[in-house]
Design a protein around this nucleic acid. Structure first.
Lengths: 262, 262
DNA sequence: CACGTCCGTGAACGCCGTAAACTAGCGAAC
DNA sequence: GTTCGCTAGTTTACGGCGTTCACGGACGTG
């Protein structure tokens, strides 16, 4: 599996001419890395302050005191730059979720589950522009290149955060899952494939089905709320979210507890 | 309440100089209306064939054998044109859902419910670009003007399709709903406001809560699938959708039935 | 010192939305 | 029946966009 704990690496793509192996951090490389970081941060700031359509090469460069073509020294295109920003955001989100898990006592699985779910929601509502970029309609900087796409990799890391919590949950205290012969025959091969290709661990397909059911409810709720598609009726959908958590928890052998008042 | 059955009206905004009341369909008006329709259709076609970012004024005009500034005779801006396209799509979607309801025997509420849910999903998967425009991250042609926004009006009509089915369902055969004092106190005033401002009918708040719960699951599932956020694990999420319907139906007093094989 | 590599600029191309000035033609009024 | 006003369209133009290219200057290394 992918599963890398740290995320500050894989920066330079290995231009020609280096002799492999030794001190890769020449002075130039350090400057370059700093610039790359500044580009991402600037793009992110423009995204937050002025919306996704304002994240143009010229605006980023202007903000940095450069001209637009200079950015081509760092990214091949506007799309690629955006994809890296997306990757960074995924990584940040993943870190926030991990930290939400870590804040809970190690054996309190119910607490971990509720904590990560609530943190996902609150991050999403607190970063609507970023959320839209990550989970909105797949339009702009799309077209994942044939190469290992940076954003895609970070997205998998993000997904793995939930999946691994789910695995831990089932391994520590198995909850009832449907046997294979009660699972929709059209779903079985897909679950099998997912288990083989992405998980690579032996576990009942019913666990994966249960995971997907929960995931759909969780991200479905968050998406609707973050995109404003519940505001036709509600200003604050938090109670609906908690209601969903109340429904989701028991079948997983978890006990619901209301959020700690701050 | 709004509730207008037909939707082919309210075209001309009533320019100055007419003497009110009589034959509003002068020859010029007819031509103009035809052009307006052609603009929408062209924009829609470009959207479907080349994606949302290709729907530019110049592209639409080019396709119609005109120049871009001519379109300003019909719409004040690119955004306003897009909002009208959005409205048209909402209207089409609403019609499809209504027809899905109408295809089912009048007293078969379970059938109606399942039919409209499945039709919503299949329309969404069959029209991903349109779906993204309607329900994606709120970015592009946004900013609903102070005036009665056309797209917004069509969206409400769309929402009403589900809400009215739900109402009919509850009126014909009431299902159990939580009493007011079991509803989250933070949710109560919101439900009350929604009932007063948008529904204007007397019904228990628990019904509205139940409606919202169902709506979140339904549109949440469809959104995730239509935006490709389930493809990390599944090629075909239909079984997951059916699983959700199986869970949703009983609490509403409905009996699930698998989709008719075509 | 000389060289190559990298970072950045400026100008340019073809898109885009939009504004303004202008024109051909229709419909109605004198 | 001519005239007039309104309408639907054009051309031109401006600024901003992504992107390409030719150029220069700075840096690190031999």
């Amino acid at each position: 599996m992918v599963f890398l704990g740290n995320h500050a690496e894989a920066a330079g793509g290995g231009r020609t001419g280096e002799e492999e192996g030794r001190s890769v951090t020449t002075r130039r490389d350090r400057l370059r890395e700093a610039t790359v970081r500044e580009i991402s941060e600037t793009a992110r700031r423009i995204l937050v302050e002025h919306g996704p359509e304002a994240v143009t090469l010229r605006a980023i460069a202007r903000e940095m005191g450069m001209t637009a073509p200079a950015l081509y020294r760092y990214y091949d295109s506007h799309s690629e730059l955006l994809r890296h920003v997306v990757g960074d955001i995924y990584t940040e989100l993943t870190a926030e979720l991990q930290s939400a898990i870590a804040k809970v006592p190690h054996d309190d699985m119910s607490g971990k589950f509720l904590s990560v779910a609530r943190q996902f929601r609150s991050w999403s509502l607190g970063h609507p522009r970023e959320y839209g970029l990550l989970f909105g309609a797949p339009i702009r900087g799309l077209a994942p290149d044939e190469q290992a796409d940076f954003a895609e990799e970070c997205a998998q890391q993000f997904g793995w955060t939930f999946m691994s919590l789910f695995l831990e949950l089932w391994q520590k205290k198995p909850f009832p899952v449907p046997p294979d012969d009660e699972i929709d025959p059209g779903l079985l091969p897909q679950l099998r494939r997912y288990r083989a290709e992405r998980l690579g661990v032996a576990l009942p397909l019913g666990v994966i089905q249960q995971f997907l059911k929960c995931w759909v409810r969780l991200q479905g709720s968050v998406s609707l709320e973050a995109f404003g598609h519940l505001s036709f009726a509600l200003d604050d959908a938090a109670p609906m979210f908690e209601l969903m958590l109340q429904e989701i928890a028991p079948p997983l052998g978890l006990t619901y507890a209301p959020p700690a008042k701050e």
